[in-house]
């Protein structure tokens, strides 16, 4: 069984974001970049499925500038077999990303595509669902458990009220949530080995896919700041303030 895993290069989740003075976006120059944390979980899941003997090949895919190579290398060091970089310096929005993945799915014919539930930069939470729609495949979003069977998968999802289990036909698209697994750190030997694994580079333009942005960013602003609060000396003062000053209890 073949799995395609999406790995997006994003601003590291520990970085404190700064909005650019000209309001066109956030500062990304000289900022630490990493694999989207959900995508690490997707890679980890694929690797575990391979270790369990269910999956035979894992292909890590990233769309973006040349530096996405590093993100793919991280996936290879975790255990992916090969990578595909779809290179572009232009902004590609979730619908465009989904279309690129559709083109790759048609080329590679995987049985499963694993993605993150959400990229922590745009917080869209769209791409996996869009890809499934474009392919006419079922989707299993917000996964907390994956069990692949013969022609179908039993998938447990984190939903508003708790957990839900569904069965989907395969091939399918899965998007992973935080509690599916804990991603491994790549060992030094595996990092060395990953350097020899192949990464194919495709120019975005060569795929003949319409990835023109449909949404225009008018401006990016700082969120409203909260007023500084006070430190209260004890519980009695706290309750008094809540009752008589804030009047919320």
């Amino acid at each position: 069984m073949k799995v395609l895993v999406a790995v997006k290069r994003v601003v590291d989740y520990n970085v404190k974001i700064r909005v650019k003075a000209d309001k066109t976006g956030v500062e990304t120059a000289n900022v630490k970049m990493s694999m989207n944390p959900f995508d690490e979980i997707a890679v980890e899941e694929a690797v575990r499925l391979k270790e369990a003997g269910t999956v035979t090949e894992i292909i890590a895919v990233s769309i973006g500038p040349q530096q996405c190579q590093e993100t793919i290398r991280t996936a290879l060091a975790m255990g992916a077999d090969r990578g595909i970089l779809v290179k572009t310096d232009d902004e590609v929005q979730p619908l465009g990303i989904a279309k690129v993945f559709k083109a790759l799915v048609e080329k590679e014919a995987p049985d499963l595509v694993l993605m993150g539930k959400q990229a922590i930069d745009d917080d869209s939470n769209q791409t996996g669902q869009m890809l499934a729609g474009l392919l006419g495949w079922p989707q299993a979003t917000f996964l907390s458990k994956v069990a692949l069977g013969d022609g179908a998968a039993t998938m447990t999802r984190e939903v508003d009220g708790g957990l839900e289990t569904i069965e989907v036909k395969m091939p399918c698209v899965g998007t992973v949530d935080l509690r599916l697994n804990t991603p491994r750190y790549a060992s030094l030997p595996n990092i060395m080995k990953a350097k020899k694994k192949p990464i194919e580079t495709l120019e975005l333009d060569s795929l003949g896919v319409d990835t023109a942005p449909r949404l225009t960013t008018v401006s990016v602003d700082e969120p409203p700041a909260r007023q500084a609060g006070v430190v209260v000396p004890d519980v009695a003062t706290l309750v008094d303030k809540l009752r008589n000053e804030a009047k919320v209890i």
């Binding site: 974001i17 922590i120 960013t217 969120p223």
Partner: peptide, 11 residues
Amino acid sequence: IYAGNAMATVK
């Protein structure tokens, strides 16, 4: 966007 650390106005 970015966990609410920036607000995007989008058309």
